[in-house]
Design a binder for these strands. Structure first.
Lengths: 296, 296
DNA sequence: CCTTTCGATAGAAGACCTCTATCAAGCAGA
DNA sequence: TCTGCTTGATAGAGGTCTTCTATCGAAAGG
């Protein structure tokens, strides 16, 4: 039963019988049969049938919610028993928005040291992807914005508050002192792509300041943005925490962006399902401690 | 997997391999094997082994919590899909403390009419049993006291507030007007057995009034108590709502018990597991409506 | 009209489950 | 201490269920 629910979740995620089967490590006929049996056992159609996948029925959608719960809890059970057997161990899968990537090390540095049997995997994603993957049980927790766009049913732990700086090559004319958002008209910029919430936030501030900006370069990685800044006269806008790591040398400079002194909270998101697994509970504790340390 | 978790729950409840197997409709070797496999899959011992059942290990206790969740959610999934298929239907199992039995009809009268395919089963239990059965998934909801003893992780809907009356055969000397708890010294009484919370509440009030009472007859059913009252000079103490149904004729009389004007809240308890199944959600709605109607 | 993609179906091999029968350990009473 | 009962584990047979490979038919795209 639980296996079939796993396959059902995979099918809903992949929207394709073959790919879902592959993701589950079974053949396509096996997955087809599993879905069919699930439908027989529950007595309802879960998937619109045709010559190809055409989405979930309303009942299927509802069943998907339950399936995620059940499968998630079953995994939690297994993990908790493994922890009881051999101490804190297992995988902890994190998805993180690009501008929070540097915070990951603060979050997991001590953790990894204290619990060498816990393996971390970190991937960079948009905030929307983070939330989707959390729902789909593809990750255990995420780092993303907490207060700008709706989150859904998740547990949150705020960690720090983002503030923005303008980053440019040393000698750039705007690097003299604080820059207002309104000053950015006609400044050549490179920014994140619009699928990134960071970019949407920046757009909001620019719009509020009455400025329209067309970045010459868009990228989904801050490494790309900073590289551009180093090698051109473009400037970029980054959260302080994300920019710091690039400002160690003297080839780049930064100044605060003010008026407004924009601020957005970034923090940990995890499934709202208590009790938490030990591995996740420990991470949440670390996040809370980190949050306290940052605000002091 | 889910089948094995069901067997594990049954074993924890019955504390006996043979009985648990019987309750699950399988043979004892099948259940033994299932528990063994569960232990192998999870990699931990769940049950203390010996020549007989000796309780759960700490890991087993923890696993039991998860098992209840998973099995409960799996049942919810099945129920919700059946409701999607054929409208509100299925079983709704209620456990009720004796003094709230008359409220059941108020609660389910309209429900049963509106949804003829929902079958109700009602049993009378102590408040502790109600909570245990709720945990063990043996019932879907219960009616019990909400504010006297700790409840655990449950959803509650208050329905009405209990007030107490002294019930006695017509002509009993105390039936003239309100009676204080302190007046009950030396009054021959019959009361519920001490495993009933109702009795414990009454004991509290009597103790607070400085009175010690040794009932001549104890029973776990109010029908027994009232029958005694009808056929003897004993009086009894009952909540108004429970007494009303017996006071239609003129062979019995009742007077309020005052000083203090004791009051305890009785209401519906259900597992704290959202979303609720449709059958249970409907019951909770009815309870809230009933609560509003009563307090007007 | 032909090709490709997608999901369903058939049939065989093997894994898994559940049963009956039986055993060994512990406990109780004589 | 012996005997009989209770309790849970084990062995082995039978049957069910699952998964695989191979193949088909329908629909979409060029």
């Amino acid at each position: 039963m639980i296996d079939k629910l796993e396959m059902f979740i995979a099918l809903a995620r992949e929207e394709h019988f073959g790919r879902a089967a592959n993701a589950q490590g079974v053949t396509q006929p096996t997955l087809s049969a599993a879905i069919k049996q699930l439908e027989d056992q529950l007595g309802v159609m879960l998937v619109w049938r045709g010559s190809r996948y055409r989405g979930l029925t309303p009942e299927g959608q509802r069943a998907l919610d339950w399936a995620r719960r059940i499968v998630g809890d079953a995994r939690s059970l297994r993990q908790e028993m493994r922890v009881a057997r051999q101490g804190l161990s297992g995988d902890l899968r994190l998805a993180v928005i690009p501008t929070a990537l540097t915070v990951v090390s603060d979050l997991i540095a001590g953790y990894a040291e204290a619990h060498p049997n816990v393996r971390f995997s970190v991937q960079s994603n948009t905030s929307i992807e983070v939330l989707n993957m959390l729902e789909n049980l593809e990750i255990d927790a995420g780092l993303t914005y907490l207060d700008n766009e709706p989150l859904g049913r998740v547990t949150t732990v705020p960690i720090y508050s983002e503030r923005y700086v303008l980053v440019a090559k040393a000698g750039h004319p705007l690097l003299g002192g604080p820059v207002r958002w309104a000053d950015l008209a006609d400044v050549p910029l490179c920014l994140m792509t619009p699928d990134m919430q960071n970019r949407r936030i920046i757009n909001q501030h620019l719009a509020k300041a009455g400025v329209e900006v067309t970045p010459q370069i868009e990228a989904s990685s801050i490494v790309v943005l900073v590289s551009q800044v180093v090698n051109s006269n473009l400037a970029t806008i980054l959260p302080v925490r994300a920019a710091e790591i690039f400002l160690k040398g003297d080839d780049l400079g930064s100044v605060p962006l003010i008026k407004p002194d924009a601020s957005h909270t970034v923090g940990l998101v995890a499934p709202q399902r208590e009790p938490f697994t030990p591995v996740l509970a420990t991470l949440l504790d670390r996040a809370r401690a980190l949050s306290a340390a940052v605000s002091n």
